[in-house]
Simulated assay, not measured.
Amino acid sequence: MKEPIILASGSLRRQEYFRLLSLPFNIMPPQIDENADGTLGPRECAEDFAIRKVNKIISLLQNRIPPWICGADTIISVDDAVFGKPQDRSDAYRMLTKLRGRSHEVITAVALFNGKEKTIDCRSVKSVVTFMPLSEDEIEWYLNTGEWQGSAGAYKIQGLAGCFVSEIQGSYSAIVGLPMHEFYVMLKDNGYPYEE
């Protein structure tokens, strides 16, 4: 029997992928400080956030340690700057103007806690997304949709922002928020009873 996993995320897309994988899960979105540590590179930053989400759930549950916890985080990197979720519309505008007409990296990290072994396995996937050149009117149109809210880099590739994407290199599911192949391999490598 598949064991339930605590999903340390409020992301609807990650929940959809868990359902697609037929994984039983409970949602516990942790509150962590999502300000990037300026000393960390983009990949290390994403991994740090994913691990911190898992550790936050462990600390909240104290002695009631579940068999599995999964934390994930997605960040955008352009010119070595890390773009997390925009704080407001003007921050989203700043991000989109930086992304238009060029390529940027999307890094998604997944941390998996194995309660039996008391270990955390963390892996990350880097993809590259290229945006077409965007006019001021197109940026304003997108900002008016509100879709940018709560999304790394101020866009959702699975939504209207897909209109702006001219090329993808790497994992689409990772760009959305959960690299399915890598996560499946993680589950197997850590002894999760996936096929039962």
Rank of each mutant, 00 (worst) to 15 (best):
D48Y: 06
Q87R: 15
L160G: 15
S77L: 02
Q169P: 00
I168P: 00
I65K: 02
K156V: 13
P29D: 01
I5A: 09
Y17M: 13
Q158D: 14
F83P: 00
E47D: 07
P29A: 09
A46V: 08
I32W: 03
T39W: 14
G170Q: 07
I75S: 00
D80L: 11
E147W: 06
L178V: 11
L96H: 08
L21P: 06
W141N: 10
I65T: 09
S173M: 05
Q87T: 14
A152L: 13
Q31T: 15
R13P: 00
A152P: 09
K116V: 12
D73P: 14
C45D: 04
L112C: 04
G10R: 05
L187P: 08
E147Y: 10
W141F: 08
A154H: 04
H104W: 13
Q158C: 05
N144P: 00
R52T: 15
P30G: 08
Y192P: 04
A8Q: 05
G146W: 06
G41F: 03
P179W: 00
E167R: 14
C163R: 11
S22I: 02
F131T: 01
F164G: 03
R13D: 02
D37H: 08
E117D: 14
V165T: 09
H104F: 13
E182H: 10
C163V: 12
I175C: 09
K53E: 11
A92I: 13
I157T: 10
I139F: 04
E16H: 11
I32G: 05
M180I: 15
L60T: 14
V106K: 00
A8S: 14
L187S: 03
Y17W: 06
N55I: 02
N35A: 09
M1I: 06
L112E: 12
L61M: 13
A154C: 10
Y172D: 07
E3R: 11
P4D: 08
N26A: 14
L134R: 04
K156D: 03
V128T: 15
G150Y: 10
A111P: 12
R52V: 07
A50E: 12
W148Q: 11
D121R: 06
D189T: 05
C45V: 13
L96T: 15
A161R: 01
